[in-house]
């Protein structure tokens, strides 16, 4: 009974079920969190009708989306139209594989974790392009084009800022990267250059996940809803969920690279202090850091005005990319001369 094939099958089923469960939970929590943060930043109350303090609002919304009719417009490419949201979801699922949620708790400890994440996240744009084209709608097409230009260009500076940490650690393996931060997180150990690359990383991933102020792919005020204009019901919900899952994933990666992942807050050789910090479970450290970064990205969304497409590309090609290239040089110098702590 317990030959390797069965063991692998059972392993896959367990992994799949837990990832889907995590997705559902994250979707509910993040949507509620977004609405609450938005409300408080705009001096409002936010959802407060469904359940205690409005806690069940996103559950009610989910039920609504589940029972809604999923329409496929006439004249659309039906196959691709229906495929696109699932691709978005699958990419999000694949990205979960190398993330370390707690000490020794991950789906796949691969040698090239960071490269894998950059590679898989480049498929994300395909689902948006597919949705935009298959809808046979001008707004969708324009949203898809914009988001393509946006994601392809911001991938560069996101990749370069990830590279700074890879240079400092000397490994693409996520476990190695986290272990290298046992005596302090990179953001503290790496001086100002790592801080700069952290800021660039946050900006670039905000753009890559198509969130305001870089929400040109959706652009409610000009393109109705951009690439998912024609989507409704569950297919829309999948896009919506994928957006939030992607936010979670990029924040988890940011937390892993710059804030030490599940590694508790350690300072150099202060054994006593480090020991006290170890009492807090590693999963709490990981989720705490990740949700802090998610909060920062939400803070951006509800503070900054949207960018125009030319401003967006200017920001990337004239500011972020040159700065992050120069910064990478600095970090390489630091790594070679061993100036970091």
């Amino acid at each position: 009974m317990f030959n390797p094939t069965w063991a692998m099958t059972i392993e896959m089923v367990i992994a799949g079920v837990s990832v889907i469960g995590l997705f559902a939970a994250l979707g509910l929590v993040l949507v509620l969190m977004e609405r609450r943060v938005a409300a408080w930043m705009q001096i409002r109350l936010g959802p407060n009708r469904v359940g205690p303090k409005g806690m069940l609002q996103s559950l009610a919304d989910t039920v609504k989306l589940l029972v809604k009719e999923g329409m496929t417009p006439d004249g659309s490419d039906k196959f691709l139209f229906n495929l696109a949201p699932y691709i978005a979801m699958m990419v999000a699922m694949l990205l979960m594989a190398p993330i370390a949620f707690a000490k020794d708790f991950r789906l796949w400890d691969m040698n090239i974790g960071v490269l894998y994440i950059t590679a898989i996240s480049s498929i994300m744009v395909i689902s948006i392009l597919m949705a935009g084209w298959a809808s046979n709608n001008k707004y969708s097409l324009m949203g898809a084009m914009r988001s393509g230009a946006q994601i392809v260009s911001y991938e560069l500076s996101a990749g370069l800022s990830i590279l700074t940490i890879v240079v400092l650690t000397g490994s693409l393996n996520i476990t190695d990267i986290i272990n290298a931060q046992a005596d302090g997180w990179w953001i503290f150990k790496g001086h100002i250059p790592v801080l700069i690359s952290f800021v660039i990383f946050i900006i670039a991933v905000t753009a890559e996940t198509n969130r305001a102020p870089f929400d040109l792919a959706e652009a409610e005020s000009e393109l109705t809803a951009g690439f998912h204009t024609e989507y409704s019901g569950m297919k829309f919900a999948l896009f919506f969920l994928a957006e939030y899952i992607n936010v979670f994933i990029v924040c988890a990666i940011g937390a892993t690279l710059f804030l030490g992942g599940w590694m508790p807050f350690h300072i150099g050789n202060w054994e006593a202090f480090n020991h006290v910090m170890d009492y807090i479970p590693s999963s709490i450290w990981f989720f705490g850091k990740t949700f802090f970064l998610i909060f920062v990205i939400m803070w951006f969304r509800w503070t900054f005005p949207r960018l125009r497409i030319d401003q967006l590309l200017n920001l990337e090609w004239k500011y972020l990319l040159p700065i992050s290239m120069f910064n990478l040089l600095l970090v390489t110098a630091i790594a070679i001369l061993k100036w970091h702590f």
Partner: peptide, 19 residues
């Protein structure tokens, strides 16, 4: 800008919503 929204986020007494 972030300081302003952060201020509102932490000061719930500023909320002017009428239920």
């Amino acid at each position: 800008g972030m300081r302003r929204t952060g201020y509102y986020f932490t000061h719930h007494k500023e909320i002017i919503t009428e239920q």
